[in-house]
Amino acid sequence: MAEANPQPLLAVENLEVAVAGHPEARILRGVTFAVNRGETLAIVGESGCGKSMTSLSVMGLLPAGVEKTGGSLRLDGTELPITDNRKMRKIRAARIGMVFQEPMAALNPVFPVGKQVAEVIGEHMSLSRSAARARVLSLLDQVGLPDPERIAKSYPHRLSGGQLQRVVIAMALACDPEVIIADEPTTALDVTVQAQIMRLLKQLQIDTQVAIVLVTHNLGLVAHTADRVAVMYGGRKVEEAPTRELFLNPQHPYTRGLLDATPHPDRQRRGGKLLNEIPGTVPSITDPMPGCRFAPRCAFAQADCQAAPPPEEGPAGHRVACYHPAAWAAQDKTEAPQ
């Protein structure tokens, strides 16, 4: 996948995560992806597909009762010590920053936000108090907050969701990390603020060459900001392609289903449905089905789909885990073109 760079910055390979003591409850069933410097990879999928677990694995912050059961997580070629909290602490925020979903809940209500940004700097950088303070102010300025002096002294309940998310981004950026994992960074925000936050992340990426892993279920967001997209379903990656390629030429029936499941006024005008939903529900993590996990909901599933999980195939830039990629192409030709 990494044509330009032989060694990707962050490489996740065959990551498997399961409920501790219940190896049959597999949350991630072999997830592989890689991100390079200055690149944005989006991980998309519906709730429960394992995208958040993937990002928490990278941080070594899997919740209690969930553990990594296989695969590797490498940062710049070195395996991440995700089970060693002491070593992982030196990597969190210092080399991998994280932006969370709920900015309103992400900051401690009893400390001014400036202090909370300063805490990261104090933990990972040896700066004097005044230098740390100056850095906090310049970070708050960098993330586009007006009057950093006042904001730094404010308690979280005095700031808006958008302002808080900027503070959280400042916190994630504070130690110049190589990677930022943004887990649904705009889900809790207004649409206009969403666009501002994504533009901010993009600008910061241009300035610092930070790699961004954007975890989201919002395809609109992905289309505007990601370089590449990995689609996850049922604990597996089903398709990965450059953003434009994925939107124009999806190969996996699930990817197509996702794209179809965005509201389409055009389609409605032509007499179709506003929204084409995917029938059925996500399989349970304990469901032992041997084949493709999407098969029960797939309109194009055939007998071979039930037998074994489909391997990832295709050219380096566009990989898909499906026995019958783009199976609808044949149907579309026989029917009237859209």
């Binding site: 941080m59 912050l61 992982m88 602490r89 030196k90 990597i91 969190r92 925020a93 210092a94 920053g97 994280m98 969370f100 809940a105 992400a106 900051l107 401690n108 209500p109 805490e119 990261v120 933990e123 990972h124 959280v168 916190m171």
Partner: peptide, 9 residues
């Protein structure tokens, strides 16, 4: 915010 604090290392 406790998880955020953990993510700060």
């Amino acid at each position: 915010f406790v998880r955020v604090a953990r993510a700060k290392g």
